[in-house]
Nucleic acid binder design. Structure first.
Length: 219
DNA sequence: CCCCAGGCCGCGC
DNA sequence: GCGCGGCATGGG
C-alpha cells in the first residue's frame, strides 16, 4: 500500500467484494416504461427527497407520487403545492421539499439539461446544495462528479485519518480514482452501505472488511 | 424518553 | 468564511 491512491482503490475493491454491486441509483424502470416518463426525473426527485432523510421514508413518498402518477417534472410542476406536500409528507421537511422539487423541476426541464447544465448553475437553485447537485450530475447526468456525504466524510476520517471540507474531499476522490462513471457511482453507494453496516457512528470494527487498513484502533 | 437518517438555508459573528 | 438552529417524518 504505497500511496493513498493504492489504498483507495484497495478499499473500493474490498467493499465491492464484500457487498457486491449496488446498482445505484435505485429507480423503478417498469413504472417509467409504462408511463412513458424519464427515469432520470425520478433520480432528481429522489435526490431532493433524501436530504437528511432515511431512504425508507423517501420510498414512501416516491410510492405516493407513483400512485398519483406524479413521478415526473411535468406532473410536479402541474400540482398545487399543497397537493405535492401531501404526497411527499413521509419524507419529512415536506414544505421545504415541495418548493425545492418545483424549483429543480422548473430549472432542469426538459431533463436532458442534466447533460449540459453547469454545476454552478445547479448550485444556484434554492435547495440544491453540493451533495444534491453532484448526485444529480453523476446519477442522472452521467457526469464525473464524486458525491460526498456525511458517511463518506466519516469513513475517510477513520480509515485515512484526515478530514476536509466538501470540495477538497471531492477533489481528493476525483484525483485519486480512475475517471470512470461506474466506479464513481458504485464507490459512493458502497461507502453508504459500509457506513450502515459497520462504520456507524459507533463503529462495529469486528468483522469490518477493511479494518486491516484503517487508522482507527479496533472497537 | 432519546437519537438518527444518503442536507440545506438563513442568520449572526 | 464558519457555526448554529430550524425544518419533519418514521424507526430503533
Amino acid at each position: 500500500m504505497r500511496s493513498s491512491r493504492d489504498k483507495l482503490l484497495h478499499i473500493f475493491k474490498s467493499l465491492l467484494e464484500s457487498y457486491g454491486e449496488q446498482g445505484w441509483w435505485p429507480v423503478d424502470w417498469r413504472y417509467h416504461q409504462e408511463q412513458g416518463t424519464d427515469p432520470r426525473e425520478e433520480i432528481v426527485i429522489g435526490a431532493v427527497l433524501t436530504q437528511n432523510t432515511s431512504w425508507k421514508n423517501v420510498e414512501r413518498a416516491l410510492e405516493n407520487l407513483k400512485v398519483a402518477r406524479c413521478l415526473s417534472f411535468e406532473a410536479v410542476l402541474g400540482l398545487e403545492e399543497e397537493e405535492l406536500q401531501k404526497l411527499i409528507k413521509p419524507s419529512g421537511y415536506y414544505r421545504q421539499k415541495a418548493k425545492r422539487l418545483k424549483e429543480v423541476a422548473k430549472h432542469l426541464n426538459p431533463v436532458e439539461k442534466v447533460r449540459t447544465i453547469e454545476r454552478e448553475e445547479l448550485l444556484r437553485i434554492k435547495g440544491i446544495g453540493r451533495e444534491t447537485a453532484d448526485a444529480i450530475l453523476l446519477y442522472a447526468g452521467d457526469r464525473a462528479f464524486f458525491v460526498i456525504d456525511a458517511y463518506t466524510k466519516r469513513i475517510v476520517e477513520r480509515v485515512f485519518g484526515f478530514s476536509g471540507d466538501y470540495e477538497s474531499l471531492r477533489r481528493w476522490f476525483e484525483e485519486n480514482l480512475p475517471r470512470d462513471l461506474w466506479v464513481y457511482k458504485e464507490f459512493h453507494a458502497l461507502l453508504d452501505e459500509h457506513a450502515k453496516r459497520f462504520c456507524r457512528k459507533r463503529p462495529l470494527c469486528e468483522g469490518c472488511p477493511i479494518n486491516q487498513v484503517c487508522t482507527q484502533p479496533l472497537r
